[in-house]
Nucleic acid binder design. Sequence first.
DNA 1: TTCATGCCTGACACTGAGTATCACGTTATG
DNA 2: CATAACGTGATACTCAGTGTCAGGCATGAA
Lengths: 205, 205
Amino acid sequence: MSAAPVGTREIGRHAVRAELARVAFNRFCLTGFNQVTFADLAEAAGVSRSTFLRYFGTKEDVVLFVFDPVGDVIADALDAERADEDDWSRLRGALESAATFLVRDVQHLATILDLVDQTPALCARLREKQTEWRPKIVARLQETASPADGSAVVADVRAAAALECLWIVLGHWSASGGREDLGDLLDTAFAAFSTPARAQTGAPL
Amino acid sequence: MSAAPVGTREIGRHAVRAELARVAFNRFCLTGFNQVTFADLAEAAGVSRSTFLRYFGTKEDVVLFVFDPVGDVIADALDAERADEDDWSRLRGALESAATFLVRDVQHLATILDLVDQTPALCARLREKQTEWRPKIVARLQETASPADGSAVVADVRAAAALECLWIVLGHWSASGGREDLGDLLDTAFAAFSTPARAQTGAPL
DNA sequence: TTCATGCCTGACACTGAGTATCACGTTATG
DNA sequence: CATAACGTGATACTCAGTGTCAGGCATGAA
């Protein structure tokens, strides 16, 4: 799932990467993402700046690399979903898989999400990753698309909307301190598409 | 709408900014965004690097500043929409306004969009702007939200989904060389929400 | 054990974005 | 005309990110 290491070197590299990220993450939370330099991180981790940069291409990746597998998680989950479901049901299920994958460490995820939306650069980079995932999702949707949904626009819109749901839901979940149920939040989010969305303030029940 | 200049100095500044952007944009299209440095741009425009940087905070803004008013355009259009419409209709209308605003110079917009999605940095920054617009849109939707839509998640999801529609539609429109009708494309995009989205390849008509 | 191969590391140098400061010339205003 | 405000260019600086190179250390073969 997350690029399972094969050789001993790969294992070592993976472990070092995790440790560097751990040390760095503490710094970021303590001092603020923008205030910490690679030199700081390298010193805190006890390696040279060169080495640190060899493990993470950018400062953003030090925080966000944990999200890398999400694209595949969603795509795989779409395959696993019953193909006779409609797009929204399948997407709803796939997002649940993604959420489950991310919520292995509740406290850590909440902290990351806090840091991310305090930091524009992290926000931007995360949305960039999200955009990279979309084509893969669109492809799965189109494999089973009915002729009536012929336009590529439709699959694109649904994939994009679903991904937006994921972040919005995670944002609210994180803001609630992780107490709200992610499944319920996903239901609420997806309901935004299916309900008639009438406007009057004095709407009939 | 776009920060109407009042004093003579403001007018001059605005004009210089436009000229610098024009010269820079040619360079970007010719050589590629990442290959062009501020030093290049300054030389091409006949000003010092300092001066160029005084007009644009970042390289991305040199290209993307034209999108700055879009957030307000959408928000204003939402106000102008009949408040008794449902959210999707209002958003659809507001997006049409945004599209109309952007398509004043067809050729130029298409070129910008091409450059943007060839350049990850521009993509990221544009999505960042988009995220900045969302809260304003959410606020308009919530002003007239029915109690049943109480959750902030719903308005958030709808605003986010609508903004995604805008870029997807513009992307397809640009890919078609500006020949397709933006209104039709918007309809197709919004149909992704309302159609049942059944999956079977041999779906009944 | 010894040697050879290959990877990891640290040191160093470099480009380029973005920030800040200062002195000079120009332009608006009284 | 005087002066204050502003635009400009020059300069110096920090930091992200790239590239190169030589030495250390492991693994594997002789």
